[in-house]
Each structure stands twice: as C-alpha cells, then as structure tokens.
Design a protein around this nucleic acid. Structure first.
Length: 427
DNA sequence: TCTGGGGTCCTAGGACCC
DNA sequence: TCTGGGGTCCTAGGACCC
C-alpha cells in the first residue's frame, strides 16, 4: 500500500522567492528569531557548505564574500503558503496527514506503481504552477521508505523530483541502500548514528539487514520499528486528524539580556497569554504550568543560572488569568538577582479536553461561565485586530519592550495583510 | 557583540506500596 | 546488628523530528 511523502525544497527560502523572483538563483538564507541561526538555505548556500542551524554571526564574513542574502523569518507568510499547499495536495487522496509546515503524507493504497508516478508528477506540477513552490515526491510502501524515496527524488536528478521506490529494480535498490549513510533514515539522529557506527552499522543497507529484536534491546522499540519499516513492513500508521497537542509551549530568546524580575515577568506574561490562547483554540484545558528562565549558556565567562518551576493547578483551566497568577508565583520562587537572563519560556502541561472537565466541587459555576465568556471575547478581539491587542492586565506593559526580539530583515506579509499585498506588474 | 522555537516518544530511576 | 522482592506510578532527561 504505497504512501507518498511530498515536501517543499528549502521551504522558507522558496516562499520568499515566490514574492521576490529576483532572489532566484542567488544564495539565500532565512534566519531564526532574533536573526540568530540559519534555519533555511537555498541550494546555492548548501553548496557553499553552510550547515543547517549555524549561528548567523559565524558565517557573516563568508556571507559578505559570497553575497549571501539573509532574510528574517516571516512565519505568517510561511504558514499561509503551507495551508495553500496542503489544500492543493488534499485533492490527490482522501487520506492526508500533514506532518509539518512543509510536508505531508498521502495514502495511495490500491494505486498501481505506474499510476503513483502519474499522481506524483501531477501533484508536483500543480504546486509549482499554482503556488510557485518546488516540491519533491517520494512514494513507497512505508513512511520510512517514502522519506528515503523523497530524499532520492531531490538528490538524484534522474528521478526529476518524483521517486517511486517500487519501480526501482531490486538490484538497484540494494545498491542505493548500500551507499546511503544510516543517518539518512528518518529517526536516526547524531547520537544513534554514532552508536550504530560503533557496532559496524554504517549504511541504510546495514540497518535494514540488522536483526530487529536484539536491536530493540540495545536501543529501543523505535529502532525495531524503523528496521521493519525499511523492510517494507508498515509500522507507522497514517494519522489523518491532527490530534490536540499534549503540551503547549511558548518561549523566546530576548533581543538583549534581561536582569530584573519585572521584565522577566512581563515576558512570561506574554508567553502565557500566547500559550493559553493556543490552548483555547484547540478547546483544551491544562492542569499544570511550567515556567523556566535561563542565562545564555554560550556566554561561559558570565555567571550561569537556570531554573524551572512547575505549578499544578487545583483544577484544569483555560483562563489566562489563572495561569498568570501561577506564573508569577513560579517566577518569584526561582528568580535570582545578578544574572543576565537570555531566555524564558512556559509550558502548559497535563492537557485534556475542555468538555471532559469535572465541575469543581468548590468552584463557582457562574463565575466560571463568566470567565469563559471573557476569554472567548478576548480571543475574538485579538483574532480580528491582530495578535495581542488586548491582554489581561499585567504590570509593566509600557512600550517599547526593550527585550523584544530582533528581526532586521523581514519580508512583508504578502498574503495576509491588505497593506502589504504583493504588487504584480503585468508587461 | 551576535547561538531558534515547538513538538513527540521512550527509558531510567526514584518514590512508594504491599 | 541483621536489611527482600516485586509491582506501579511519576518525573526528568535524552533522543528524535521539522
């Protein structure tokens, strides 16, 4: 039962290029928040040997020499492009799993290999034509193999962007696997790669031919599953509906070091507002809040401090104000003076459906209903007029927030704000 | 000077109980 | 002074992904 994996090439860079055709063919990177790290690279930049995730300041010199163009990330634009891409692809199968912002699986069971190729090619052309994004397509009997096929589709010109694993003769398949390093397998990262190397497993072929049982003992059940998937036995099911998040985080590094509890509190309040809004959007409640603060671990010459506190609520809630209160408590407990804090964040934990909440025996049903109404109104206003226009009262909302992140070179919201719509000149 | 953010799953080990 | 064995539950931390 074939599964297709479609994903965009250098997604963030490609999105930027759709609205800036002049960037085509040029070395382009997109940077993370605070313009900190490289999170997307065009093919030209990859060819220069720039690794994923490197700090921008480390390659600034090279960038200058090679004329690399750096853009701040524009997540609103990428999210919107992603949605359009997923909608187009949903036409090709009734069963679609959106796996990340730039990739999805399509279930093609019952479709013959030749037909799979046809579907892959059409999908690829359509995304290119309708959206302007380049995508690669891998089709194989399991998700893990589809990932590998997708890798081949992008790397080997002979496949022209669409690789159907089952069309490849067995002998050729073996040759391919013998040449692919084991770290190309979906689920094998740096650490496991190293450990596999120690026991003589270097290529995907080696892993495919390892005995799953002892490998499970040595690593974990995930390893066994991976080996079976490589052998064509489907172990990772399609997940069509997006399950509600079991954990919701919000965190940011600061644009400059932060020292006072007031400023930390201000940041944490905003993260809580953001996280609880996500929580309500998926119609959930959370029973615990974890807050953490830390100095910059890379500044080894400075005194380091990091701390985290979990506050368990007496009852699961989705009320921003309750979490704000808990957050303040956590911060007061762990804050230490005399450190330059670089980052703070919050996690909402023990999330469950809002429907299943037991009424608190000691609670006030009417007050709770009023609170829910208040939060719903707040979400509506913010949805209508832009994020974070209205926030529950917290100390210290003066603008500008000195610690807010740096984004030096962000592109306009081409697709989501009238004022910034792309202007097209017809010739 | 400048090093992202948001997730999931699994395991080891401690606490606790009988 | 001597100091078992087995189970469950929870949490922290590690590994992975994009």
């Amino acid at each position: 039962m074939p599964i297709a994996l479609i994903d965009a090439n250098n997604f963030y860079v490609s999105c930027e290029r759709v609205f800036r055709p002049d960037l085509e063919g040029k070395p382009v990177v997109v940077l993370s928040n605070n313009d900190g790290c490289v999170v997307a690279r065009s093919a030209e930049v990859k060819a220069l040997g720039v690794a994923m995730g490197v700090p921008w300041f480390q390659i600034k010199k090279l960038a200058q020499k090679e004329g690399i163009i750096a853009l701040s990330s524009n997540y609103t634009l990428y999210a919107d492009m992603s949605q359009r891409m997923m909608t187009i692809l949903s036409d090709f199968s009734p069963i679609q799993e959106v796996y990340s912002i730039d990739e999805c699986f399509l279930d093609l069971h019952g479709v013959a290999p030749e037909q799979c190729r046809q579907i892959g090619q059409t999908a690829r052309q359509r995304i290119r034509q309708w959206l302007g994004l380049p995508v690669g397509v891998g089709i194989a009997p399991t998700k893990t193999l589809a990932k590998l096929a997708n890798h081949l589709a992008k790397k080997q010109p002979e496949y022209a962007g669409v690789c159907v694993w089952e069309e490849i003769p067995e002998q050729k398949q073996a040759e391919i696997l013998q040449q692919l390093p084991v770290t190309e397998v979906w689920g094998i990262g740096r650490q496991w790669g190293k450990r596999l190397q120690e026991i003589g497993i270097l290529t995907v072929w080696d892993l495919q031919n390892a005995d799953p049982r002892p490998m499970r003992q040595r690593f974990s059940i995930l390893m066994e599953r991976m080996i079976r998937e490589l052998r064509g036995e489907s172990c990772i099911a399609m997940e069509e509906v997006a399950l509600p998040k079991q954990e919701i985080q919000s965190s940011r590094s600061f644009g400059r070091p932060v020292k006072t509890m007031e400023e930390l509190g201000e940041a944490i309040s905003i993260y809580i507002a953001r996280a609880t809004s996500k929580l309500r959007r998926q119609n959930s409640v959370a029973a615990a809040l974890r807050v953490y603060i830390r100095t910059n671990p890379f500044q080894t010459s400075l005194p380091q401090y990091q701390a985290a506190r979990t506050v368990v609520l007496s009852q699961p809630s989705q009320d921003t104000r309750i979490f704000l209160h808990a957050g303040k408590l956590a911060l007061t407990q762990m804050y230490r003076e005399g450190f330059a804090y670089a980052k703070a964040g919050v996690h909402l934990l023990e999330i469950s459906s809002a429907q299943s909440v037991q009424a608190d025996l000691f609670g006030d049903a009417e007050a709770e209903s009023r609170a829910n109404h208040l939060m719903a109104t707040l979400d509506q206003i913010n949805a209508r007029f832009g994020k974070s226009i209205v926030q529950p009262g917290i100390a210290g909302w003066q603008e500008p927030r000195g610690w807010a992140m740096k984004r030096g070179n962000k592109s306009p919201a081409y697709t989501t704000r009238w004022a910034e719509l792309a202007r097209v000149t017809l010739k």
